[in-house]
Amino acid sequence: MSIKETDQNNTPNPKNIVYDTQDLNLWYGETHALKNINLSINEKEITAIIGPSGCGKSTYLKTLNRMVEMVPSVRTSGDIKYNGKSILDRSFKVEDLRTRVGMVFQKPNPFPKSVYENVAYGPKIHGIRDKKTLDEIVEKSLKDAFIWDEVKDRLKENAYGLSGGQQQRLCIARTLAIEPDVILMDEPTSALDPISTLKVEELVQNLKENYSIIIVTHNMQQAARISDKTAFFLNGEVVEFDETETLFSNPSDKRTEDYITGRFG
């Protein structure tokens, strides 16, 4: 057997799929917002979703934690399996899903409480009362979100006193405190300055060791820098889904090339 053949036999096992979307369609009233989406999202990878405004990328993200149901006129067809279970099935409890799937939004949205209480809020709701355990969770979450050193002496202060970049990392810490499997991020750095953006990007890359991350971004360089796979959405369809390096260096669809090189329209 040649060396090459040996190598091929030793390729690592394919990654587990955390989200498997099959023939997903979504309508807001008469508007067909997502059309036949088929996407398999790997566990412990960063998946970026890019596309022009109104292409359906945020709608898709909000479908993954069923937040989209808050819009009254929404209808869906098709299936999304989260770890093998159909989440669009009404019997699937949305509360269970939301404890496994955290979300970070475009604008930092800390609670009007202290830094400590922001992070301890989720675990408290889940019934953790022991002060020492809560202290540990808060410290670990803030450390994992790369903000501990900046706030460790300000834990009792109101979170609104933090800078925008710090607030966003605090929100990420708040998400980590409930130990989710997946973190959904909807343009998490679009309201941040370049340095805060880089800090969040670095953080996201570190988090993928333990979490599956799906990030919607308008910043294509950001998608190229931090993600493993990228999906390009256009008019509610997935035009291309590939390894990030391939999608940004040698896309197979002309529409992807036109979009990433800024020649759209």
């Binding site: 294509m220 360089q221 940004f248 260096s249 040698n250 990433i260 090189t261």
Partner: peptide, 8 residues
Amino acid sequence: EQPVAKDL
């Protein structure tokens, strides 16, 4: 211009 793909 931060070009990508063919432009780069």
